[in-house]
Design a protein around this nucleic acid. Structure first.
Length: 495
DNA sequence: GCGGATCAG
DNA sequence: ATGGCTGATCCGC
């Protein structure tokens, strides 16, 4: 879609070495303002600048201004900052004047309370899509609304959520800022997505490679795991996990594979003919292998040990500013060629589709058509996501439109590239429809229907029905209502 | 403790 | 709302 809207769009591949190198430069500046600053991620950090302000007799705002300016001078990167009484508030404030800005929230209690009062719940760090919707359902839209609705919150969301939300309402947050390495790691895992796979031998091979990958990570982080967890995602996007506790902490690919294979086989029995699109292995209940964490006899000194300060050397060539040479002309050419080829393929494809659809009523739907072209659909809608299939059809549509546009008077009609049903000519509605056709729920319905009924009936409207109910949590609701009569699960309140 | 689910980045 | 990946946490059972 982006390519369609923006044909000159340049695709840039990820380059984590580059980002890490840049982050290192930025952190070198931050360090001067708080030697014990906390890296929250590659591009986020918390600093306690209390001491810096005292030592330099500066306002927090001036100190932060200066720090941002220094970061920009030394790295050519602009950053935004929030200045507040604790980490939670600072994080929220940092989003106020993005990009390249800062915002200070005074630390007076009344100021903080009125700041929170009008703040939409979603702005708070642990309130995500789901909780936002659930809160909304009981009339809580802002953090101020939390307090007035406290009567419901405990029973609906549990004690933990209650205390968390009360803290949110009050604008409370942690003030202890410390290096990330001092935070103990809880798990090490790896997972990967692949084409639908059901052949047991192929799955074994995949498991083997997953185990080898995890061994690498365990080696790097110097951990063994006392618990081993297998994760699996079916072609329907359902996710399952299974875990075991080996007799001793595991580490090598052989051990990982041998202990996870039975779990995989059990899953194969539970779901005969299961088709996977993702597999992962994770170790928890970690045991540190770092020498410093072992006692005189080589036994683990503690169960939970901090991470090592890891400073991986990247063998990347950098220019005088520390930037990797870029954009790479070679890459740009290759990428352009790829896009062109894509377009030619799409042209070809849409041509064929249009032809067949016109002389072969009722026309194939896009799915059947693409399947006949050997393009996986339904079981592998990432092809759509990559813009391959549906873009072809969009292309065909806009082509037709362009050809017929001079007279201008023409029954306009956009066909959904996924379900092939005609849609109203309205960008917003069309987008909504496509979203519906691509939603997880819809995919699941289609895929499951496809597997239960071999001969497929004429494709039902993919979108309307499923978009309408996509907000719910069907499975959980049905189950809880069936099993526990009046004591409804909280999930059933928000359908 | 297990398995599902949410959340963040 | 969507994809992929890593990691943390919470809840019900």
């Amino acid at each position: 879609m982006a390519d369609k809207l923006c044909p000159q769009l340049i695709h840039v591949p990820l380059n984590f070495e580059k980002y890490t190198a840049k982050a290192r430069q930025v952190r070198a500046v931050l360090e001067q303002y708080d030697p014990r600053f906390e890296s929250a991620s590659i591009d986020e950090a918390y600093l306690n600048i209390t001491k810096y302000c005292q030592d330099h007799n500066m306002d927090p705002e001036d100190a932060v201004s200066q720090m941002r300016e220094q970061v920009f001078q030394e790295t050519k990167i602009t950053i935004s900052a929030g200045i507040a009484a604790n980490a939670k508030l600072a994080k929220i404030c940092s989003n106020k004047n993005k990009p390249n800005g800062q915002f200070k929230l005074p630390s007076e209690r009344t100021t903080i309370l009125s700041f929170m009062r009008d703040l939409p719940t979603r702005k708070v760090n642990g309130i995500g899509r789901v909780l936002e919707r659930e809160l909304d359902a009981i009339g809580v839209k802002t953090c101020g609304d939390i307090y007035s609705h406290r009567q419901y919150i405990n029973r609906l969301f549990g004690e933990k959520a209650f205390e968390f939300l009360m803290g949110v309402y009050l604008g409370l947050g942690r003030t202890d800022v410390k290096p990330a390495e001092e935070h103990a790691r809880r798990s090490v895992g790896t997972e990967s997505t692949f084409h639908d796979m059901s052949d047991p031998q192929e799955l074994r091979d995949k498991l083997r490679r997953t185990a080898e990958s995890l061994e690498e990570d365990l080696k790097r982080t110097e951990f063994k795991g006392r618990t081993l967890c297998l994760k699996v995602k079916l072609h329907t996007y359902e996710v399952f996990t299974r875990q075991v506790q080996p007799p001793k902490a595991v580490f090598t690919a052989d051990e990982l594979y041998n202990y996870s294979l039975p779990m995989l086989q059990k899953l194969e029995k539970e779901y005969p003919g299961m088709k996977l699109r993702l597999m992962g292995l994770r170790c928890t209940h970690l045991v540190s292998m770092k020498k410093a964490d072992l006692d005189f006899f080589g036994r683990a000194r503690q169960l939970n040990t901090p991470n090592p300060p890891q400073d991986s050397k990247s063998g990347v060539e950098l220019d005088e500013d520390g930037w990797q040479k870029w954009p790479d002309a070679e890459f740009e050419d290759a990428a352009r060629e790829e896009r062109q080829q894509d377009l030619r393929d799409l042209e070809q494809l849409s041509q064929e589709y249009a032809e067949r659809a016109s002389k072969d009523p009722p026309p194939d739907d896009a799915k059947t058509f693409l399947q006949s072209k050997g393009i996986g659909v339904g079981n592998d809608y990432t092809r759509y996501g990559n813009g391959f299939a549906w873009r072809a059809l969009l292309e065909a549509e806009s082509q037709k439109e362009a050809e017929a546009s001079p007279p201008k008077k023409r029954i306009e009609q956009w066909n959904c590239p996924i379900c092939s049903l005609p849609q109203v000519v309205d960008e917003r509605k069309f987008n909504e429809h496509i979203d519906g056709c691509l939603s997880r729920q819809t995919i699941k319905e289609i895929v499951q229907q496809g597997s239960s009924t071999p001969e497929r009936k004429s494709a039902p409207p993919l979108s309307q029905a499923s978009t309408a109910k996509k907000r719910g949590r069907p499975a959980a609701v049905t189950k809880s209502e069936k099993s526990s009569g009046e004591k409804r699960s909280k999930t059933s309140f928000f359908t």
